[in-house]
Nucleic acid binder design. Structure first.
Lengths: 253, 253
DNA sequence: ACGCAAACTTGCGTGCGCGCATTTTTCTTG
DNA sequence: CAAGAAAAATGCGCGCACGCAAGTTTGCGT
């Protein structure tokens, strides 16, 4: 029995310096940082372009790396999986923008409304090319999964803004609420992609591997007839509103 | 540019027949099914045993398969990753038991309380050997991640029971609440493992790759001093209670 | 009992994720 | 600006996940 050589690592080794938590003041970005951003974007763009040109399954990381002018090994210093680069080309830094949008709302409005609107706002900006890419994403299981997983990225920044607004309540509450929002968004996107790419074969089994009840022909077919993304997002966020109100100390306005 | 040969598949190909949604009546399991269960358990047990004996990073899937008397290829017909088998030996079918425990509560009690108690109950049954295994799991990043991901498994069964109790509300609500519970449980377990294996090196960066604020020395250190698992679970579930009450139509009892 | 179809196993081959060690590039400091 | 430190890119190797295309086993109808 030989030993395994490694024990997993944190993804994106030097992707996010961690000490530089999005400095509000951008001093001079420095050459190092600029090159890194450039490489990252080159990889994203190359990945998306190749995926569109030849189909998502005809592209290897080697191809993406070559198109971006870096070694295959370097690719994995930026993205932990083959799909992440493609997804990142569409997702970009949506998470940060959502958090910023929430923070920008006046302090008087319900937190639940603020976050709902912010999410819808940021997910509805379909910039022509994004639509095309999303259509591509909906076609394959792997890409779809990667796209949905990317939605989890909103959790950390959301936790931060929530913690600020709910200072008196525990920090745990902020984390839980942020995670719940992420889950809701994921569910909404899942339903949306299901209707968007409703021409594929395997539509019965849920994307999360749900084999239990609630499979294909269960109840709830008439509730929310798989409509527009904003509608789905609103519907998914609605059940969480009472939790936000309670955390804010509102007595059902 | 050669083509990639595959496009991902559903994990655990014939692990859950899907058509057989946990039949309440177990007719006669049949030889086929019994063998499958035996193989699955053999793999789980072998994986855990080898991991304990030689350390989690010294075990390859090849070793596990050999110890269980199947081919390496067969291993991946049952588990999608090397860690899943080890985790499964501890997790077993906790998800199903949690859902059953929730369904077993009298219909009069608050749903929020029912699910909280059910979760605590099922996660607190530490059967001596499980404690040892969990200690093992806490030591490595990969295993820890797999263990936390496994908590997501409660989502489908919970969705089912929620949908039953909240029949009048939409099925979407059930899904969102179930996902939120899963997220809360994950957060609680995360905090618990952090305190349990608090002798490792890299404890600063969050397990979810959280690099932003809320890192190591942020605010909230005095809220919930990383205590017992039941306490952590209760604290994580608390913020969701209002959402459950609202879904049940309760006006703050 | 026989044979057939479906379920499951297995060997093979490919691409992928990443630890490790080395080289190259960028940032500091005197 | 030169030298050293820090960060990043690269090459290499290993183990892993899984499609595919055989084999083998189990269940069923006649």
């Amino acid at each position: 029995m030989r030993a395994r050589k490694f024990a997993y690592a944190q993804v994106c080794v030097y992707a996010y310096p961690c000490g530089t938590l999005t400095p509000v003041t951008t001093p001079p970005p420095g050459l190092r940082e600029r090159k890194k951003r450039a490489t990252r974007e080159a990889l994203r763009e190359a990945a998306l372009r190749l995926a569109v040109e030849h189909g998502p399954d005809q592209v290897r990381v080697e191809d993406i790396a070559e198109a971006a002018g870096v070694s295959p090994r370097t690719y994995n210093n930026y993205f932990a999986s083959r799909e992440q680069a493609i997804v990142a080309a569409v997702t970009a830094d949506r998470e940060t923008r959502i958090a910023a949008a929430v923070a920008a709302r006046p302090a008087g409005v319900r937190l639940a409304d603020a976050v709902t609107e912010a999410v819808i706002e940021q997910y509805t900006n379909a910039g022509e090319r994004e639509r095309e890419a999303l259509l591509l994403i909906a076609t394959g299981t792997a890409l779809r999964e990667a796209f949905l997983d990317a939605a989890t990225g909103i959790e950390p920044p959301l936790t931060a803004v929530f913690a600020e607004r709910l200072a008196d309540t525990g920090a745990q509450t902020a984390r839980v609420l942020a995670a719940s929002v992420a889950a809701a968004v994921r569910i909404a996107l899942e339903g949306w992609l299901r209707s968007a790419g409703a021409s594929g074969a395997d539509e019965a089994a849920g994307a999360t591997g749900a084999c239990g009840p609630e499979g294909g022909s269960g109840a709830g077919g008439l509730v929310v007839p798989s409509g527009s993304l904003p509608g789905l997002l609103r519907a998914a966020m609605a059940p969480l509103a009472p939790a936000f109100d309670a955390a804010e100390g509102r007595g059902r306005p």
